[in-house]
């Protein structure tokens, strides 16, 4: 199994999220470096004379504060927010017509997976075809759980209140270990799901094999 998680994206949604991450990491490093340098210089620069204490600050510090405390952060935040909105648009929140529909029902502490069109049910393991969007319809039979495959995209909670839809797509074959991502009780840490992305023909074969052991 590849170990990168969200930093090793294998689907379009995860790619967008990873790109956003690298942008923010870059900006974050720059901001921190600027801050650290200013702080270090402020702390360690050599001062010729004892500063005249009790003196009122000259207005140049007022300008510092406006530029450094308001304008610069505002610019950085606007860039980040623009990238956020852009990325948010790409993350689908409704199922495209060609999507494969998979129902995931969370239980304490196992995953029930139903393929309504294919008519099969599996436990703790789900397969999806590569290159096709998959619409996960998420709900819970008891408490709140959360479904997360970091290499493919972000997470979505499974609520007993209703059905949430999460759309993901795998662009390469691979096997992923998915952990429940919302604390759900005693064995939350062991509520694991194997997610297998495979080429369409292999997927069809797998579905056919399941028929023998379906409900």
């Amino acid at each position: 199994m590849r170990q990168g998680g969200s930093l090793d994206p294998q689907g379009p949604v995860a790619e967008v999220m990873a790109d956003l991450w690298w942008l923010m990491l870059g900006l974050g490093v720059v901001v921190f470096t600027v801050f650290a340098v200013l702080l270090a210089v402020g702390l360690f620069r050599r001062r010729s004379t004892e500063p005249k204490a009790g003196l009122q600050q000259s207005n140049r510090f007022g300008r510092w504060i406006v530029v450094g405390g308001v304008v610069m952060p505002l610019i950085v935040l606007l860039v980040v927010f623009a990238a956020t909105v852009q990325a948010l648009r790409v993350v689908p929140n409704s199922a495209p017509p060609e999507a494969l529909v998979v129902e995931v029902i969370g239980h304490q502490w196992w995953w029930e997976v139903r393929y309504p069109e294919e008519g099969i049910t599996t436990t703790n393991e789900l397969h999806i075809p590569v290159g096709r969007p998959v619409a996960f319809r998420l709900t819970s039979a008891d408490v709140i759980h959360s479904f997360w495959v970091p290499a493919l995209g972000g997470k979505m909670d499974l609520l007993p209140d209703g059905v949430n839809t999460l759309v993901l797509q795998a662009d390469e074959p691979g096997e992923h270990l998915s952990q429940c991502a919302e604390f759900c009780g005693l064995e939350h840490a062991n509520m694991r799901l194997t997610v297998v992305a495979e080429p369409a023909e292999r997927f069809a074969t797998w579905v056919a094999d399941q028929d023998g052991s379906s409900e």
Binding site: S6, M17, M24, G28, A83, T84, A87, K155, M156, F183
Partner: peptide, 17 residues
């Protein structure tokens, strides 16, 4: 700085929890 990162929703959908 990491707080601003998690404020970005698409990234937070990975980082949350």
């Amino acid at each position: 700085i990491t707080g601003v990162m998690v404020a970005a929703v698409p990234f937070d959908l990975q980082a949350h929890d």
